[in-house]
Structure formats: C-alpha cells, structure tokens
Design a protein around this nucleic acid. Structure first.
Lengths: 231, 231
DNA sequence: GGTCACAGGATATGATCAAATTTTGACGTG
DNA sequence: CACGTCAAAATTTGATCATATCCTGTGACC
C-alpha cells in the first residue's frame, strides 16, 4: 500500500474534508465579495490554477458556479471576467434587495435571541473600528457579516441564498465605492436596526434595512454615473 | 477560410456553435423545468454521460451550474439529487416570485408592442389547447413560455435571471401537481393579464401576475401538505 | 489592408484514485 | 432452524489530474 500521502497543497488546513472545487469556490467568492477583484478584470482558468494551487477541473467547476451566481460573466468568446455593473443593473438589484432583505430582517426580528443581538453589537463595533481607521477590507467583511448574521435568524434559506447571490453581483463595485469615498463617508442604519431589534419591532427593523440597502446602492449608482460621465 | 466544418456530431443542427457543457446544461434545465425529473430522484454523473452521450467534464460543469441555480441539491455525501420542496420552501418562493414577477409584469407592460401581444395570445391559445387535451408537458412548456415572453419585455435581465432561477426550484414539483390535479383544474389569470396589456394598465397586469403566481404556488403547497399528511 | 501562421488559453477526454453504497456472508440469538 | 445484526469485500459513483484538441485573437509578412 502506498503510505506516502499526496502532496498537500493547502498549508495548515484543519478541515480538509471539503472537496477541492468547493474550497476553490469559497475562496473565489470571498475574493469577489471582499474586493480582491476589480470590475472588468479578466479571470483565466490557468491563472487561477496557479494562484490557488488547484487543478483545472475544480477551478472550472467553481467558475461555472460563480457565473451562474452572476459573480462572473462569460463573454461570448470564451473568456471570463468580473462584471461591470451598469446603472440599470444597480437599479434592479436595489429593487430586489430592498424587497428580500427587508423581509429577511422582519422575519429575523421575530426569531432573535439575546445572544445573537449581543454578537450583532460586537460585529457592529468591529465595523465602526474598521471604518475609523480606513480599513476597507475590514469594513466590507464586517458589513457583510452584520447582514449575514441577521439573515441567518430568518429561517429562510432560499431567500438568504438569493440575497447572497445579489451581494456577489455588487461586491466588486462596492470596493470601487470605498476607493472613491473612503470608509469615513459610508453611512449606514445599523444603529436603527439594533434599536428595533431590542424593541422587537419587526417593522422598524425592516424599514431600517430597506433604507440601509437603498443608501448603499445609491452610492454605487453614484460612482457608476460619475464614471460614465468621465468617459 | 476553412470551409469544411468540423465533424458535426449532432445531426442537422444549424447552431452548432454552443460548447458541450452549454448544451448539456440546456437539456438538463429543460428536463427539470418540464417534468422529466421527479423530486427526490438521484442524479448521477455517469448516468448522464451515457444518456446524453457527453463526456464527464461537461456534465460535471452543467451539474454545478444547476446546483447553483437551486435546481439540484448537493447532499453532503457528494451525491446529487432533485430537491424535494417543503411547505416552508414554497412559502419563500411565493414571496419572492410575487414581488419580482409582478414588477417584471409592470415593466413589461410599459414596453409592450402589438406584435408581442399577438404572440402572447398565440402562446395562450396553445396553452389552452394543451390543457383541454391533458397534455402535461405542453402545459408546462407553454405556461413557461407565456411568462418568459412577458418578462423578456421588461428590459431587466437581472430580475429575469432571478425569476428563472426560482422556476427551476419548483419545476419538478409542478409536475407532481399536474399528476395530482390533472391539467383541467389548473386555473390561471392569463386572460386578465391580456386584458391589462391591451389597456396598457401596468398595475392591473402586475396584480394579475401576482395572483397567478400565488394561485400556482398554493397548488404546490397543497400537494406537499397532502403528501406530508399521508406520511 | 488583407492573409496567414503562431501563441495563449479554453474545452473535452480518459485514466486513475478515493469515497460511499450495496452486497454478501458469518455469527450469535431467540 | 430462522432471523437479525454486523462487518468486510465488491461495486458503483465521484473527484482529480494530465494530456490532447480546438478556438480566438494577435502580429508578422506580403
């Protein structure tokens, strides 16, 4: 029997149970969500096999999933790139996000327990800290975590799945927004949400969520319009 | 220029430009949407390579895309199957579909031209014909086409994409509904939509669409509840 | 400016390895 | 003696890789 294990590419991986294509997918997803990818940037299979140390097949599968998610686009010729949103795209995303995420917030409020509220407070503190020191990646991560932690309480996996898919679409553009405005000038309504959660006022939380979403999307739209005008 | 075309495996297909994984994806999607797949049915890669005459890689990629679409589920053990919806799932799908598809109908009404209205009438006629003869597959196809043709006018690709994704989720269950109730007893509000389209009354069309969606989803929920009760 | 060859990259195949399910058989118990 | 339980072999299916083939865009050359 062959006792020599195959070359372990991933260094120091505690949970090596997940298949390679899953790992590749998660890593690419994180890169897209948290701003390592710029809109318009080309994505090549062979480039990823090197940078991620994985084979072609897992990378191909991960890319297909991300294309289906809307996180990458397939440009007829068989090249793949990070999509560049248009103002019309932002408008559609805004409509759907407002609808879905407000409802998720509403449902989450009803299931919310004290422990989760506390951990939300913690996440929001870290978020504020990241904002104050201009840590863009930290801002993006904690902001995502804040929303995700709320939605996780909604007990609505399908809606969460759809919401996540939409985040993947505007993730790269959010990075651009941060580059343009800096983290200091990114308002949010997290405090209002926390108020509503403490009071168990589902409608207040839903409304705050809707406004939070709209505010964020408006910033994205503004940057895109600015870019269009400059061109 | 090379005038000799590459060996065409598929016989007599004018558009042989599509790559294998795309063809496999489209065929599986159609099978899921139009009822060739039963909820709970196992999907094996090797089975598909045989039944579709394709290699493993294209089949794998198509399956990943469909998993991302929610049309198939990945059961931890790395097996794949057609998902079985729960009542809670139906409820979530209903909420989102109502919101998105009503809005799509609203927007489509504003862009609707006479030719498209005519072709909608034609589709609806074929739909009625399929209903009256109990042609389940025809019913599913034409019903889908009717909705798709409306949404195509909305000029909102992202929302259409999301809507399509939701159709893939409940497609297999719809087949079960037809098996339970027959096509005769499946009401719809297509006539009301057509009325609204002729009058260019976007709100009326949106409301009819919302009711149509809700009605259909209620049937699915009813069948699922029945199955749960029987167990 | 048009054509052709070349290079980079994507697609597709089959082989090989690993994991999970199913089959099979042995054993103990009622 | 029949049956149920458990375990290990065998088979089925999934995951990954290396390689071959094909497409697309580019640049050299006429």
């Amino acid at each position: 029997m062959n006792l020599i294990k195959k070359s372990a590419i991933a260094p120091a991986d505690p949970g090596q149970k997940a298949p390679a294509h899953e790992i590749v997918y998660q890593r690419l997803k994180a890169q897209i969500l948290f701003g390592d990818m710029a809109p318009g940037q080309a994505v090549t299979i062979q480039g990823l096999t090197e940078s991620l140390g994985a084979g072609m097949t897992p990378v191909r599968e991960a890319i297909r999933r991300l294309i289906s998610d809307g996180a990458l686009t397939f440009q007829g010729n068989r090249r793949v790139k990070v999509p560049e949103m248009t103002v019309a795209d932002v408008e559609q995303v805004t409509f759907v996000r407002t609808s879905i995420e407000a409802e998720l917030a509403r449902r989450a409020t009803k299931n919310m327990d004290a422990d989760t509220i506390q951990s939300l407070e913690n996440i929001d503190s870290r978020l504020d800290a990241a904002i104050s020191v201009g840590d863009v990646e930290g801002y993006l991560k904690h902001n995502y975590d804040f929303h995700a932690a709320i939605y996780a309480q909604a007990n609505a996996p399908i809606m969460v799945d759809l919401a996540e898919r939409l985040w993947l679409r505007f993730g790269p553009s959010l990075r651009v927004v941060c580059g343009r405005f800096g983290t200091q000038n990114l308002p949010d309504l997290h405090k209002e949400m926390m108020d509503g959660l403490h009071r168990k006022d589902a409608e207040a939380v839903a409304m705050a969520m809707a406004q939070d979403v709209e505010q964020g999307m408006n910033l994205v739209a503004a940057v895109l319009a600015e870019q269009d005008a400059a061109r």
